[in-house]
Amino acid sequence: MPDLVAGLGPYLPLLLEGARTTLLLFVLTLPIGFLIALPFAFARNARNRALRGLGHGFVLFFRGAPLLVVLFLVYYGLPQVPGIRQSVLWFLLRDPFTVAVIALSLNSAGFQTHIIAGALRNVPANEVEAARAAGFSRPQVFRFIVAPHAVRLGIRSFGNEAVFVLKGTAVVSFITVRDLMGAANQVYFRTFELVPPLVFAALVYLAAVFAVSRFVRLVEWHATPQLRRAR
């Protein structure tokens, strides 16, 4: 490890800056994607057919479209829409980093909608009925019965999605954002030494995934008191 760091020498700041950008993209994309996903998840489970179709279409689009295409279309395609450069939206679309966050969040929202809708659907109906019979109001049912249950059901898939988001950040250098992967590549193309920058990048990604899996376990531990007692 010290050898690796020494070998990178003058390029270490570049790689650390890239790692910072990657992690920043990651921590912004997940919650923003979640906020976008929530209404679509409710639409996906709604009684209304049109709403259900909307939620379904949203999920299918982002589960089927390659991230690179989404990124290109948002970055190079949207500025060509007439009037968009005069709109308030342009304030967001002007900056490559913001575009990366938007594209990654939308993409992740497609997957998160799928996860959230599935988890909400699979909350046992009898528990909801029992709570209603016991005099819980609708918001109370959601807060105390549905939400905790859905978290239990969805947390694993959510953890997998978090890893997908992290890996997805590696394509943002295609729109001039210099993330960890882009920085590693640049170091390779400048030094013609393949192993040090790639290993450095790989270790950062692995560490981030490790942190994610720890977090998932922590949430699981808090969300499933019955399993805790069984141990």
């Binding site: 500025p79 002007r94 490559p96």
Partner: peptide, 11 residues
């Protein structure tokens, strides 16, 4: 092309 596209877009 990408440089020119972003020049045109004002980025």
């Amino acid at each position: 092309d990408q440089v020119n596209a972003d020049l045109e877009a004002g980025r």
